[in-house]
Design a protein around this nucleic acid. Sequence first.
DNA 1: CGGGATCCCAGTTGATACTG
DNA 2: CAGTATCAACTGGGATCCCG
Lengths: 117, 117
Amino acid sequence: MTGKSPPSCPMDAILRLLMGPWTTYILWILNDRGPQRFGVLKRAVPGISTRVLTERLRMLQAAGVIWREQSSTIPPAVTYGLTERGKELREVLDALDEIAQRWQREGAFSDPRLATA
Amino acid sequence: MTGKSPPSCPMDAILRLLMGPWTTYILWILNDRGPQRFGVLKRAVPGISTRVLTERLRMLQAAGVIWREQSSTIPPAVTYGLTERGKELREVLDALDEIAQRWQREGAFSDPRLATA
DNA sequence: CGGGATCCCAGTTGATACTG
DNA sequence: CAGTATCAACTGGGATCCCG
């Protein structure tokens, strides 16, 4: 993230975790399609760079939201999937998503200040 | 936010809305203490600059999450408060906050990568 | 294939000064 | 009091190259 928030609020930590672009999208995919390999994720998330995808996965893993399984073959195969904590998080995110979709229908994000790009 | 996410996902819009530092903190205060004036908010959110606070309030207002009431007196008095939509949002944020606190007790954010500062 | 190291740019923030 | 304007500084992201 760019700035920082009052350290006292744990929610800020969890939001920092989710905040980066695509983070929720990654969780969405892992929740929707089950465990996936790095390359598949990269292709599934349109426009993400290797560096950022790696970073996001590391953060999610550090928070115990996803697991990482690495086979030491050549070429390597690394698979990521949701942990229990990740699934728990998805539930809340789904609720948030439901609200977001409704608000969108109601035009809540039509203001240019909230532009997608 | 800095980057951009898949435009198709409304949740990204709502996360962009919440994401900026202090945004959830502002909502928290408005939810907790009721409508507040600009200056009070500024003092309540430690370290925020005038410019950023203004921008956040504008975004939240644009999304219909908070209302703004201005009295054209001198000196002016501007008050902000949660709308129904804002209260609805707080419910989900409270659920997220509950998870965040539990995770914190479980050490989910102890990794330096998720550092608060 | 998965990802670490670099370089560079754009956007965002912080600080400061000014105004109705 | 409640902002707006401006500028400098920082950070995060994209692109690229390389390695095990």
